[in-house]
Design a protein around this nucleic acid. Structure first.
Length: 664
DNA sequence: GTAGGGTTAG
């Protein structure tokens, strides 16, 4: 009989919640481990199985899930750990269906298999998955602490504190992780008071308990309270080394909230030894995470210089340090320094590569981004997404769709980021058919959040499918943000539904949603299209006094458009002459359009000349002016324009549409 | 290979 079996005893949970008996083993030494199944001694495992298990785990850890699966399929000698490792890989990637398939297929399941599967379900969003996890929990033949704690934290994370507590109370023997899990649940659900209550009454605390409380307080915006807790309970904590963990949490918290000075104050409180003195095992000193968190705080605050100063001081930089610093330069659009660091860093991981890609894409260097993308040893989903969104933002719409096809061929599944970029592509290229396909993918693969719904509304709005846009908008009910409103108002406004646009704008104001500059662009546009001159003027005048939005050149362009269409060309010119910004092509374009409608050739000439300066290559103003002269029978002036076109080497460009060719 | 707390990318 092996040794550990001696310590196993069984406990029975109350019948009320129908839980089968489970088996718990005792703590053994420092490492708390609980075993609930007979496991073979490591020396009994054949070396080839041990080797493949290690290889699979490494592949999965390296993000090469599909390679891991290929290896798994190839080998014939597997043990339960092999199956579990593979399941764990799928669980990490939220590929719950594939995980379940393996779970159902495997010849022998141990408690780890069940725990893995439960945690897989619970890490997916939605009540359905929560119930599925619970079903497994109730069905499993034996439970250990991990099963219980997984289930408790699953409920807590989903905000179901009632169910979490019910299970917690049922546990005859709770361990410190169980306590930490419920406390974390209270904090996650904003119940700071109860969390502190439980923290105070828990029978024993470990280093994570303090961390749970501190980070939970930070999430609840109680930063100063977090610092108090740190001092009050941190003192009694004999694990000095673990104190750094809690300090790091707070440094990161201050950094996240932009309180960089407080972060630094705390950072300076952590001693920084240089090798001598107390035994290294249990002392309170800065570790690399402290440095990384402080660097991040500076980066969040936009202080790349101070961040770099610290970065250069770290003696043992890890991949995090490098990546954080690179991300700082990427955020500051300093791609040269970012790629300089990248070339110096010892072991760039996929994240480093992705940072460089988005750095190049952000600065418009799409070619370079692509070069790096091709060179990534193991692309992950973010690599694909970065490249796709890079294409989208640099108007390489065909490139974005081509990459998406390649991504699918490579077996990488789209997520909300992929889909949102693709929806932008559809909106920009007015590709309704493709947009509808992406919409289907959205329904199938993710739970649409506010930004994704906004992208859908924008896409449908841009494509003129106002009804579909409205359906999504309506379905969002109370989960809208100002972008949702803007997208819907913009959709109406750009497709001639001025009345609906303005009605929605009024509703938005009634509901106290603050309009933005984008809202007003659509609103004024709607007024222009509907010929609502007086209303347009009023809306324009209300922008600054009522909403604190200073009109920008787009708004002036709309105002010029509104009054110009109405034939108030003098007023239009007065707007231009008195506005605080330089008129752009939209402004002059509005004037020119108004002149065309109201037959004012002299003013048209002024506007056209202004446009010729702003857009020397465009034939538009020349043609318009030519036609106006021709219509007026002023053939001399007309031929002068024609000559001007020739001397300036302007060709009448063919009208083209930007509809994406890959949309079918 | 599974549960609770700290730092990086789209």
């Amino acid at each position: 009989m092996s040794l550990w079996w001696r310590n196993v005893r069984s406990l029975r949970a109350p019948i009320s919640i129908h839980i089968a008996p489970y088996i718990i083993a005792q703590k053994s030494g420092q490492n708390i481990r609980y075993y609930s199944t007979l496991r073979p001694k490591i020396s009994d495992v054949p070396p080839d199985i041990r080797r493949t298990n290690k290889n699979i785990t490494n592949l999965i850890r390296n993000g090469q899930l599909n390679d891991g699966r290929r290896l798994f399929d190839k080998i014939t000698h597997r043990n339960t750990v092999t199956w579990n490792s593979m399941i764990s890989g799928y669980v990490q990637q939220r590929e719950i269906v594939k995980a379940r398939q393996l779970f159902d297929e495997m010849p022998q399941r141990d408690v780890v298999s069940w725990n893995l599967m439960i945690s897989g379900y619970l890490s997916c969003q939605g009540r359905r998955y929560l119930d599925e996890g619970r079903k497994l929990f109730d069905e499993m033949p034996q439970r250990d602490f991990i099963s219980w704690n997984t289930m408790i934290s699953g409920y807590a994370k989903a905000g179901n504190m009632g169910e979490a507590l019910e299970l917690f109370e049922c546990m005859n023997e709770k361990n410190v992780v169980s306590w930490n899990a419920v406390i974390s649940g209270f904090l996650r659900n904003g119940d700071v008071k109860t969390a502190v209550e439980y923290f105070k009454k828990m029978p024993e605390r470990d280093s994570a308990s303090l961390g749970v409380l501190v980070s939970g307080l930070i999430q609840n915006e109680e930063l100063d309270e977090a610092e108090n807790v740190l001092y009050e309970f941190g003192r009694s904590d004999d694990g000095k080394k673990d104190m750094v963990h809690a300090y790091n949490t707070l440094i990161a918290g201050y950094g996240q909230k932009g309180r960089v000075d407080d972060a630094r104050r705390l950072f300076d409180k952590i001693p920084c030894y240089s090798g001598e003195g107390i035994s290294k095992k249990n002392r309170f000193e800065r570790n690399v995470v402290s440095w990384n968190s402080m660097i991040m705080a500076y980066i969040k605050a936009g202080d790349v210089v101070s961040a770099r100063e610290l970065f250069d001081q770290i003696t043992e930089k890890d991949t995090f340090s490098w990546n954080t610093m690179i991300s700082g330069y990427v955020h500051a659009s300093n791609i040269d320094e970012a790629s300089n660091l990248f070339s110096k860093m010892p072991n760039p991981d996929v994240l480093s590569w992705n940072l460089i890609i988005s750095g190049y894409a952000q600065t418009g260097k799409l070619e370079l981004a692509h070069d790096y993308f091709e060179r990534i040893p193991h692309k992950n989903r973010v690599s694909w997404n970065s490249m796709i969104s890079g294409c989208e933002r640099n108007a390489d719409y065909e490139g974005a769709i081509k990459l998406f096809r390649e991504m699918q061929q490579a077996g990488e599944k789209p997520d909300r980021h992929t889909l949102s970029s693709l929806l932008s592509v559809c909106a920009e290229t007015v590709a309704l058919f493709l947009g509808m396909q992406i919409h289907q993918l959205v329904t199938k693969t993710v739970i649409a959040d506010i930004p994704l719904n906004n992208s859908l509304i924008t896409m449908y709005g841009r494509c003129g499918a106002i009804h579909e846009a409205g359906t999504i908008f309506e379905k969002m009910k109370f989960q809208k943000d100002v972008i949702s409103w803007n997208a819907m108002i913009g959709g109406y406004a750009s497709h001639g539904f001025a009345f609906e646009a303005l009605e929605l704008f009024e509703l938005m104001k009634c509901l106290k949603v603050r309009p933005t500059r984008i809202t007003f662009i659509s609103v004024l546009n709607a007024c222009a299209h509907a010929g609502l001159v007086e209303q347009g003027r009023l809306y324009f005048k209300s922008m600054d006094p009522e909403f604190g939005i200073k009109p920008e050149v787009e708004h002036f362009a709309s105002l010029v458009d509104i009054v110009g269409r109405d034939g108030q060309l003098e007023e239009a010119m007065e707007v231009i002459n008195t506005m605080p910004v330089e008129p752009d092509k939209a402004v002059w374009g509005a004037v020119l359009g108004a002149c065309r409608v109201h037959n004012n050739v002299e003013l048209a000439r002024i506007a056209a000349e202004a446009l010729m300066c702003l857009e020397p290559e465009s034939s538009g103003p020349y043609c318009l002016l030519y036609n106006m002269y021709a219509d007026a029978g002023r053939w001399d002036d007309a031929s002068e324009i024609r000559k001007l076109m020739e001397t300036n080497n302007i060709r009448k460009e063919r009208a083209y549409s930007r509809v994406c060719s890959s949309s079918s």
